[in-house]
Amino acid sequence: MNEEQLKRLSLSGLAAAVLLMLVPQDAFAMHIMEGFLPPVWALAWWLLFLPCLGYGLVCLRRIVAQDSHQKVLLALCGAFIFVLSALKMPSVTGSCSHPTGVGLAVILFGPGVVAILGAIVLLFQALLLAHGGLTTLGANGISMAVIGPVVGFAVWKLACRAGFRRDIAVFLCAMLADLVTYFVTSVQLGIAFPDPQSGVVGSLSKFMGIFCLTQIPIAVAEGLLTVMIYDQLTKRQLITTGDVR
């Protein structure tokens, strides 16, 4: 019964993802778009992302080997990331912002697996939604699937050890993983495109002013949504507190 419920949730996420594919969307969003980064930076971020993918594969194999039923829950987390990170909301200067959706997977499986889930999501979004790109997938993966989840996981662990209520710990993990993702993206753009007068610092402050501030309400909303999803999974005994990493 529990597995059947998980399958239904995964199918619902897949249906939402298909709907998102069918709706025309502006291609310029917070994922760094195809060809936007200078080649040297695109390559550098790819080289940093590849070892994270290798570690993620090791984590994924270990989780599946321990319990093959976790495949369905992994699929649900992947669908959650796909749907939320494809929801592009108008920001400023003609750009867009979106949630990341990584908090749930970080809590249930740890940050290593999120590198694989995030890479799959970013690949499909680049190919099917013109959201992000292949050359910039390494940079987008580092921000959304590596550094954001690692910070979220650290916050989750610290909050649990500090005795915070479980829902507050979930909220902080999801919210801060989202905000850190946008901070890292701002850094990536700032160092790739330094301001002619104020250099990297000036460029970084401009990108952070555009994206990080407008992302705060979205990050709060994502934190609340993740709390609701986590609460429903625990109420239906699809996960227990012993399942989380």
Rank of each mutant, 00 (worst) to 15 (best):
M1D: 10
N2V: 07
E3R: 09
E3P: 00
L6F: 07
R8I: 14
R8N: 12
S12H: 00
L14D: 00
L19N: 01
V23K: 11
P24A: 13
M33E: 08
F36R: 08
W41Y: 11
W41P: 10
A42W: 15
A42E: 14
W46G: 08
L47S: 13
F49G: 02
L53H: 07
Y55N: 10
Y55M: 14
G56V: 10
L57K: 12
R61V: 06
R62P: 00
V64Q: 05
Q66N: 09
Q70K: 12
K71S: 03
A75N: 00
A79P: 02
I81L: 13
L87Y: 08
K88W: 12
M89W: 12
S91N: 13
S95H: 12
S97K: 01
H98N: 11
H98K: 07
P99V: 01
G101W: 14
G103A: 11
L104I: 06
A105N: 05
I107M: 08
V114Y: 06
A115G: 06
L117P: 04
A119P: 14
I120L: 15
V121N: 14
L122M: 14
F124Y: 02
L127G: 01
L128R: 00
L128E: 04
A130H: 13
H131E: 10
G133N: 07
G133P: 12
T135G: 13
A139W: 06
G141A: 09
I142K: 07
M144N: 10
G148N: 09
P149E: 06
V150A: 15
V151R: 13
G152F: 15
F153E: 03
V155C: 15
W156N: 05
A159Q: 07
C160P: 00
A162V: 02
A162P: 04
G163A: 02
F164K: 08
F171M: 13
L172Y: 02
M175D: 04
L176T: 09
A177F: 02
D178C: 11
T181N: 03
L189N: 00
G190V: 04
I191L: 07
A192W: 07
A192L: 06
P196E: 06
Q197P: 00
Q197Y: 05
V200C: 05
S205A: 05
F207D: 01
F207H: 11
G209N: 11
G209C: 15
G209K: 12
F211P: 00
P217A: 02
P217W: 04
E222F: 11
L225H: 01
V227C: 10
L233P: 07
K235P: 10
R236L: 10
G242F: 08
D243W: 13
R245W: 07
